[in-house]
Simulated scan of single mutants.
Amino acid sequence: MKALIVSDSHGLTGELQELKQKYENTVDIMIHCGDSELSPQQTELHGYQVVNGNCDFGSSYPNEIIQDVQDIRFFVTHGHLYNVKATMQNLLYRAKEAGAHIACFGHSHIMGAEVVDGVLLINPGSILLPRLRREKTYAIVEVEGHDASVTFYDLSGRLAVQQTFQLG
C-alpha cells in the first residue's frame, strides 16, 4: 500500500496538479489534510481525499475521513479540532477509536512522523508555508506487512527525510 499525503497548500493549484500527475498512477490513495482553500469543484483536487481545515471557509469537505486502503485504515483530519499544536493525545484517541493504523493531519505546518501506541501519526508539513524547516514538504507512506516507510520530499522531489516504523 502506498499513499501520497499533502497538507496546508493554502490556495496553491499548480503544485497540487503536479503532485497529482506525478503520483496518481503509482499510489493507492492521495490525501489532502486540509487548508487547501480551494473549492471541491476545482480540478486540482480531483482524485484527492480532502478534509476541511480551519482556513477552508464555507467548504463542504468533511472534518474527518476514515478510509480503508487494502488492509490499512487511515484516519484523516486537519488537526485544528484536535488541538494538535499542543498535544497529540486527542488525535491519537480519535484515531484509535476509529481503528486506524495511520492518522494523517496538518495544521501545524511541521512535518513529522511517529508511532504512538501502535498508530502511525503523519504530518506532511506544508507545501506553501513550512515551519521549523525551509523545505516545502509532502509525504509518501508505504506499508508492507507491519513495516511502514515514511518519506518526506520537497516540492522539487528531493528527499528531505526518510523514516521506517513498525505498525502495531
Results as ranks from 00 to 15, higher is better:
Ala3Trp: 01
Val6Asp: 01
Ser9Gln: 00
Ser9Met: 07
Gly11Ala: 11
Gly11Asn: 10
Leu12Trp: 10
Leu12Thr: 04
Glu15Gly: 01
Gln17Ile: 12
Lys20Val: 05
Gln21Asp: 12
Lys22Met: 11
Lys22Arg: 15
Glu24Val: 10
Asn25Tyr: 04
Thr26Met: 01
Val27Gln: 09
Val27Thr: 03
Asp35Val: 03
Ser36Asp: 04
Ser36Tyr: 03
Gln41Ala: 15
Gln42Pro: 03
Gln42Tyr: 14
His46Thr: 13
Asn52Met: 12
Gly53Arg: 00
Asn54Ser: 05
Asp56Phe: 07
Gly58Leu: 07
Pro62Ala: 08
Pro62Trp: 13
Asn63His: 10
Asp68Gly: 13
Asp68Trp: 00
Ile72Cys: 02
Arg73Ile: 08
Phe74Met: 08
Phe74Leu: 11
Thr77Ala: 03
Val84Trp: 14
Val84Ser: 15
Lys85Cys: 04
Ala86Gly: 06
Ala86Trp: 14
Met88Gly: 06
Tyr93Asn: 11
Arg94Cys: 04
Arg94His: 05
Arg94Ser: 00
Ala95Asn: 11
Lys96Phe: 02
Glu97Tyr: 09
Ala100Met: 06
His101Val: 02
Cys104Tyr: 09
Phe105Gln: 05
Ile110Tyr: 06
Ile110Gln: 13
Gly112Trp: 11
Gly112Phe: 06
Ala113Arg: 12
Glu114Met: 15
Val115Gly: 05
Val116Ser: 12
Leu121Tyr: 05
Ile122Phe: 07
Asn123His: 01
Asn123Asp: 12
Gly125Lys: 06
Ile127Thr: 02
Arg131Cys: 01
Arg134Tyr: 10
Lys136Cys: 15
Thr137Lys: 07
Glu142Thr: 15
His146Gly: 09
Asp147Arg: 04
Ala148Thr: 13
Ala148Ser: 06
Ser149Glu: 11
Tyr153Met: 04
Tyr153Gly: 13
Gly157Pro: 05
Phe165Gln: 01
Leu167Gln: 13
